[in-house]
Each structure stands twice: as C-alpha cells, then as structure tokens.
Design a protein around this nucleic acid. Sequence first.
DNA 1: CGAATCTTTGAACTGAGTCAATTAAAGTGG
DNA 2: CCACTTTAATTGACTCAGTTCAAAGATTCG
Lengths: 279, 279
Amino acid sequence: MTCPTAPVNATNGTACGAGVRCSASDALRWFGLSDQTGPATDQISFPMRRVRAGRSLVVEGQPFEKLHLVSGGSFKCVQTDLDGYEQVLAFAIHGDIIGLDGLGQTRHGSGAVALEDATVVTLPVADLLAMGRHVPALEVLLHNAAGAEVARRGDTQYLMSAPSSEVRVARFLLQFARRQAALGHSGRRLRMCMTRRDIASYLGVAHETVSRALTALAHDGCIQVSHRDIELIDLEALNELQRVTRGRQTRERRADTASKATAAALIKAAEAAQVSTLQ
Amino acid sequence: MTCPTAPVNATNGTACGAGVRCSASDALRWFGLSDQTGPATDQISFPMRRVRAGRSLVVEGQPFEKLHLVSGGSFKCVQTDLDGYEQVLAFAIHGDIIGLDGLGQTRHGSGAVALEDATVVTLPVADLLAMGRHVPALEVLLHNAAGAEVARRGDTQYLMSAPSSEVRVARFLLQFARRQAALGHSGRRLRMCMTRRDIASYLGVAHETVSRALTALAHDGCIQVSHRDIELIDLEALNELQRVTRGRQTRERRADTASKATAAALIKAAEAAQVSTLQ
DNA sequence: CGAATCTTTGAACTGAGTCAATTAAAGTGG
DNA sequence: CCACTTTAATTGACTCAGTTCAAAGATTCG
C-alpha cells in the first residue's frame, strides 16, 4: 500500500532534507487515493519538511495557512487548556492530514507535536484550492480528508464514552492496530510511539490507569507488553471486551441488543469482522 | 443575527411545508456567512424538508448524497453500537450542518434524529460541488462547515476529558449557552431540547449522574433548574468550576499553570472572557 | 384518564483517581 | 563511554466519585 515508485525527487519518505519536494501524486498515494493520480498530479509538487521529536509542527492559535500530510514519523494533536493542561485529541501517523480544524477558519484550534523525528508534506491551502479547480484530485483529497477527520473524531468520542477504562484501552489498541494494518504494517505487533501519559490524555483517564489496564490485559492473555512494544495475542477476546460498554453486560442491555440491532449495526458487524484479518 | 429578509419563498424557517425552497443566500445567512451572499447566491435555491420529532433525518450507513442545514428545531447526531447502544456525538441547532462525516466517503458514519419538529435545508453535495466552481460562496460554506465541525468535535473531546462529571455538565451548559448566544438568543435562559439521557450519552456518564450534577449546581446557586428550562445564574462560578480539570486543583497543577501558559492559552482566555457577555 | 417515558432521589458497591514510592529508560555532559 | 539527571512506567494503598439497582414522582402522549 505504500508506494513503490517515487517520482520527482522524494527520497522515499524517511530520509529527506530541507528543500526537498514531493509530487502531488505521491501525496495522493500516501493518503490512500492512488486511483486519483494522473499526469496532472505528477506535474504538481509540494515542499516537504522535517520535524524533530518533541518539536511543534503546528502551534495552537497560529494563522491557518497550510495542511500537513504525515509521510514519516508520528504526531500528537493537542489542545491546551487555560491552565496548561494538554488534551490529546488524536495521534497522526503516515497518511494522516494535520490541521483540518483550521479549514474555513482563520486560526488553528489545536496544535501538533512530533512524537519522534518526522517528515511531512506541506500543503498550502490557498494553492490547494486554486489548483483544485482544475485538478479534481486535489479537491477530492481535501474533501476526503475533511470527512475522514470528522468521522475519526466521532470514533474517538465513542472510544471515550466507554465508562470502563479497560474497555477504553482495548478499543484504543484495536483502533491503532486497524490503522497500522491499513498502512500495510502488522496489525498485531504494535510499536507505540507515544507515552502512557499521552494515551491517558487521549482516553481521558489517569496515566496509572493505562498502565494497570495494560498489565491486566496482559495477565488475561489478550496482549503482551514490553515497554512500548505491544503485541495483540487474543484478538477474539479483545473484541469481546471492547464491545462491552460496561464491565460486564447487564440483562437489560442484552435484551436491547436483539430489538435495537439496526441495519447500521449489521454493517458495523461486517466491518468488525475484518478485525480478525489484521495479519 | 437571524435574517429578517427572507427572499424567494421560505416562509421564515419554522413553518414550511413540502416543496418549499430556500435561497442559497438564506442558507448562508443562517450558517453565519451573511457577507458571502450576493446576486449569484440569490439565484440559487435549495429544497427544504420538515422532520417530525423523533424521526431520523439521516440513517447511519446510508449512502452519502446530501448535507442538511438546520433551519428550525434541533437534532441529535448519533452513532449506534453493535449492541444497539446509542452514543450521542453532537446536538445540532439552527445554523448547524448535519452529515459532514460523509464528505468524501460513500456512506454516513452517523445518524441524525430530530429532538423536536424541525426544518432543514437540503444541500445536495454533487450540486454544491458543481456550483461551487462558479460561486465561491458555496465553496466557502462547505470548507467553513467542515473546519468548524472538526473543531467542534475537538471541543467535545475536551469536554468529555474532564474526569469530574460535575465539570462535564458545567462545560456542557456553557458550551450550549455560547451557541445559543451566537444565534442571538439568550445565553442565560436555556431550553434544553434533549433528554437527560441524551446529555448523559453525550458526556459519557450515567443519566442519574447528570441529574445529580444539575441539582448540585442548583444547590450551589450556579444555575436554576425547572424541568428542561435551565437558567444560568452565576456565570462566574460556572466558569471557575469548568476550568478545573479535577474536583479541586492540586498544587502541582497550579504550578504548571504559570510555566505552561502559552500564547494559545492567552488567546483562549480572551475568548473565555466573552462568556460573561452572554446577555 | 392511563401508559409510557422522563426525571429525581436514595443506598450500596466498586472502579478509578490521587498520592507515594520504586524501578526502568533515556538523555546530558564531563 | 560512563556517571548523573531527568523523565517514563509500574505497582501498591487508600479514598471517594460515579455507576448500578431500585423506587417514587412528574410529564407527555395517545
């Protein structure tokens, strides 16, 4: 799924100094829209930028001018409190676009910090819109990115809604695994690029609780943890757990299941079934 | 802020039967982009649709074809679980656009249910994109809506991250008040269109907890509750409470405040100051 | 007017937050 | 390259806020 052919002069994502550019075709491929590439997008190029671990790519409140497509490394998207408390809104990995909350706004509503040395493709919004009129692929990219971002944040809300912290962690692991798998990586062996504290902020729990939940899941044989390497052992069990909204399912809720199960739920069930194919 | 002039034949939002249309200029005004209206947008019209209380405007999993601008009434945006558990992702009121999570996707990721009899302007996406090439206002509308939706969901994540349920409820009330005030309504006297259960789902707590938090806030003199009418009495105190991440502020966090307070935080402080001007 | 839903309140239990202390890892600088 | 500092992660003990269960009013709707 990662592109084998790298036209123009993108030195294959990971290694690229200042001044290096990358074609719009590359950007589209990285984003997952290979079918939108063509002669027109080969002609267009965007600048790339390196960001060192711990540095900010986007600062909250900054004027909104550019979007950033992550080509290497990873980021956390954060919103900072009046009191300096840092709420993690999302983790961005290869193929994700950062800065969409600024669309149509004058300023960025959230910042982005590199979790490790990273590389991004800089997409100037003004150019994107101007060129989008003649190159539909760019318009498709923008709309796709916006819709996906809204949907992804909805998933995160769902994730945070689980009252049990163990369930939250399980859902997080599965969400992360699914995204890794979509990039062609292993969906079983995960390298967590963020600290436990970041995960905790993202999930809305204390960082000690994340630790405890991970060790609990490990004891149950669902996963195997060593430092930041997590291996998903029993996907079946993880899914079982993740589905439970609260500790153990109550009879009432079980009764609801049969009656309320809608077409939407069935579609989701089909999607969920794919989890077992994480390789 | 609500438009006084209603061209074409929109019978002023609330009352409008089937077949009624509304001009793009009206839609732009309702959305809050009055400055984007012009002769071109006066020429364009969109169909309007009534939705009875309790009925679905959008069903999860449905093919994505249209966006909906709420012109009257209100909606809850929901995502349904495999087990039929309904997670409320957002409440949409006048001026909000529903369905943005489908942008660039083939299907809607979440549904929308009317909380009371409501009216929406139907915006066919294909038309919107086609006309957007010649009428920039429509493009602006779309991008503005997408960016605002992403930002709003970020706010919701922040809201849900508060570990104390009382804080969550306080934040919710202030968020709701701010939105009402932005529409020109009173930001002090609120008519809650949703059930406690809906609020609870939105906040990620038990519905009993919402009840208790409201009565607690009422006892403290912050608010006054009678059925679904809530009056914000002591905005100062509510803001004080809302800022606190956890029950009472710890010394450590207080120490962080001074050092970590960034430019972003200062901008936010300025925004927050506006809360007192809720009228 | 009755049925259903919504809302509030009470009581008991427990999960998760806080505090604290230990171990492990990752930078830093001589 | 190794002591040294700093930050990250784990684990334990304690407490309390919030969930769950239950039951009684209030409100809405047919």
